[in-house]
Design a protein around this nucleic acid. Structure first.
Lengths: 189, 189, 189, 189
DNA sequence: CCATAAACGAGACGGTACGTCAGGTCTTAAG
DNA sequence: CTTAAGACCTGACGTACCGTCTCGTTTATGG
């Protein structure tokens, strides 16, 4: 087992950067460990030594990029407006090829690798989910939201957008708005 | 281009069956055209002749299995109960490894292959989506549903379950119930 | 197991030629299957399909080159002169880098691989040994040689030269002459 | 350049012992510097610091074992009998796997590395060759041997056995006897 | 009712990437 | 300064599949 105190931080960063960039340039199908190692100027063994799979590298790449993103969701006092703003931003990001392709690559790996899924949930999804729930919790306090399970609320608001993205359905900012309105008001007349 | 009138129906069925079964047994990562051909007792060329990709084979495999499923959603007059029944059934299916793994394999391919995504939408998703919208349309007629975009309504109801499945979040039948209730009544107090 | 009737003769020849040339150019230490495949314009698997080891490829390369060498040893009636001529030719060949390096590569593999050694003995050494014994047999008939075991006679005549080559002792044509004289007359006064 | 006065003698011995034993156990192909270092409980650098190549380690290992072997060849007055005894002993040693495999490993390296060959000749072969020539010189003095070049005489006597060993021909003690007889009496009637 | 052209099984082929092993260099911490 | 330990870049290993390309061998009309 490797001794992480001797780990070369330059190599680590080069690998994560290369992985993210390559995923965005060549797509998941052609993303290879060999390619990442070559682009990073690193031996393959250095990747195999520290990560168990291609997906784990990608996950770390996203983690590196998301460092210092702890901003929290906007809180103008108007829940609907805030959610629309956030969801529109999400849609915009998902339509940007620079994030779309690497995220598809990661999502695909997660879909097949339960251990990776656990890591993703714990280290990437959970922190931002906590921010989302934080905003919703405040909305509950000021009476703009009923007292439901917040994890489910998050899924009801963000789920439809995520699914459209994954299945390549039409994904527009207008759709994001409609989803927020519906999720808040419900489908009943 | 091949003459489909001469196509060997036995080989076709053997290939689709082998693909579906192998996807369920060995998982997506180890699902190979060579493996499918070997299991089906077929030459590789016979696969390449008739399908453009591994994902297309899987799609056809699901289509073969779904033939004669044209049942339509239940309509007891109680929309909420009907949706809960359907969504609970969906959850049950997604938790069955025999469907889980092949569906993950297909979903993964769809995520990376826009052309396959189009085919999936058109030939697998659209028909069942139409049944769902049919049921919702009736609900609108009898005043149980407001007059929203039905495609969006479908995504709001089924999206959260799909996302939990893909990202391996906790997926229970209770969750299905809560989603239906929330989607109908909304998150506002 | 591969079906040799489908074997690509061009690839086979390209591989053997590449192996022999590379052995002569880069030496044994840097002779790799990858290098041979690249030089031959061939996939690695094509080599692994038909040969069990690098040494087996080299052996076949020598066999290909030695096809049509069935000339037999000179027979002028003077055994000593004939043997000197042949041994001098052997020395000359062993001092030519084009044969020296590939032969060292092959010899080295033979030294470690009993199965390859068997093949070498049977297919390369045996035929030329037979020619040598043939010449010696004629010498026995005409009374120029005593009736000893011919295999041992061959080793006594050719062995010293082979060992000097392998161990990089001083290997000259004069040495070849002296060996023939000594082997014929003996070391006793 | 390392200062040999600070050299750790324990490490040196452990390395040479490990090299020799491993060569005998796993064979030349799987004999690695890493393996030797691991078995010797030593860092790789300690090997690279003091030896230029794997072959040099092996050579030193043989030198360590041969220390105090300076016995000289038997001299009963009967040259033929003495040579047979010595050559039989050689054959016996070469058939012992404990010496056979390490010696093959070393011979193989010598065959490809001229500098190592020089070292071998100087430090391992030359001393025992000198003993052989000493015995032959005495035979010349007492008229049992003609006044030939002694180096060549040594090669004529020991060469055939060495070649049979290297090429894995049938190597028996009877063969050793016949070689001695032939070398002394010659092949002529 | 064959003949002939296609689809078929089989699998060799040139490739790419896999995950592993070892080579030789370099760095770290302990003595 | 040497040592044990081991991370690092490099490059080859032998394997698995890719998608293409022959090979005979069915098979199924259509002349």
């Amino acid at each position: 087992m490797p001794d992480s105190s001797r780990r070369n931080e330059n190599s680590r960063r080069a690998i994560l950067t290369a992985a993210f960039e390559l995923a965005g340039e060549v797509g998941y199908a052609k993303l290879s460990i060999e390619g990442i190692a070559a682009r990073a100027g690193v031996g393959k063994q250095t990747i195999y030594r520290w990560w168990p799979s291609k997906g784990a590298v990608l996950l770390d790449a996203f983690l590196m990029l998301s460092e210092g993103d702890g901003g929290g969701l906007p809180d103008t006092g108007d829940l609907e407006a805030d959610l629309k703003a956030v969801l529109r931003a999400t849609v915009k990001e998902l339509r940007d090829a620079r994030y779309d392709l690497p995220m598809r690559a990661l999502s695909s790996e997660i879909m097949h690798d339960p251990e990776l899924a656990r890591m993703y949930a714990e280290r990437l999804d959970e922190p931002v989910r906590e921010l989302k729930k934080e905003r919703l919790r405040k909305a509950v306090e000021v009476g703009q939201l009923s007292d439901v399970d917040l994890d489910m609320a998050v899924d009801v608001i963000w789920g439809p957008v995520t699914v459209r993205w994954m299945q390549r359905g039409p994904l527009t900012e207008e759709f994001a708005d409609r989803v927020v309105e519906t999720a808040l008001s419900g489908l009943r007349p």
